[in-house]
Design a protein around this nucleic acid. Structure first.
Lengths: 128, 128
DNA sequence: CTGAATCCTTTCCGATACTG
DNA sequence: CAGTATCGGAAAGGATTCAG
């Protein structure tokens, strides 16, 4: 573990240092659409219109924006075919697939504990 | 795995169904402060003012709001001591500590791959 | 078909003032 | 000390229009 490096002089964890890299990842997938695109591309390469159909509810603007961001971060590759009408295909890179596996860990925990969270919410809401 | 249940008739994954529980978790920790509070409370129980000192940059309003949300979801417990001046202590529940372990998985991946993302960004930005 | 550009609404959140 | 309440700026994101 890397935790040694981020302890302050008083022995406390430096919250910021610990959170920072995690924060970066969460910020990356925490927006409204990246996670859904990641899932959609999990089964293989898709073109823009297919993505838009599978990620229902996404606007053209936001899909483009999300894809640009993910391409910039090396999570997916974008290939433009010189045809008319144009055909553009997106595919996860190895880095993107790795991120997907991480997210799979979250999903696993989510499936196992979302009911606990829901129960806690009900208790909290009814008590007050 | 639960993936069988979320395949559509055409054999494709239903992106929404797959992502939904994960989305809920990401939304929970994806806001600006929850992650930092989670880290800060990792080393043990803290009172409000201590939290505010450790999570530097957080406003009193946002800290309160974040703590309320996490309490509602059963991630932490809030105990008010009947004293003057008041003393309120926050501590992670077992559920909260479980979530922390999940986040640790993200952190591990982040430490190993954030440089790749940074490199990809530089390549992308300089190329255009 | 893919995508850029603009407008406009909604949401987030920091600053500030006030309270038991 | 540990909150609550309110206001306004900033940012996210949806709808729409135009273009290669």
């Amino acid at each position: 573990m890397v935790t040694n490096e981020v302890r302050s002089l008083d022995g406390r964890f430096n919250v910021m240092a610990l959170a920072c890299p995690t924060r970066a990842v969460i910020d990356r997938i925490g927006d409204k659409w990246t996670l859904l695109v990641l899932y959609a591309l999990g089964s293989g390469r898709l073109r823009f219109s297919q993505l838009r159909a599978q990620v229902q509810g996404v606007s053209q603007k936001m899909l483009t924006q999300t894809l640009r961001g993910m391409e910039r971060d090396g999570l997916l590759s974008r290939t433009v075919h010189a045809e008319v009408p144009p055909r553009v295909e997106y595919e996860l890179t190895e880095l993107g697939r790795g991120l997907q596996e991480v997210v799979a860990g979250i999903r696993l925990w989510a499936y196992g504990h979302m009911d606990e969270i829901d129960e806690a919410r009900e208790r909290y809401d009814t008590k007050i």
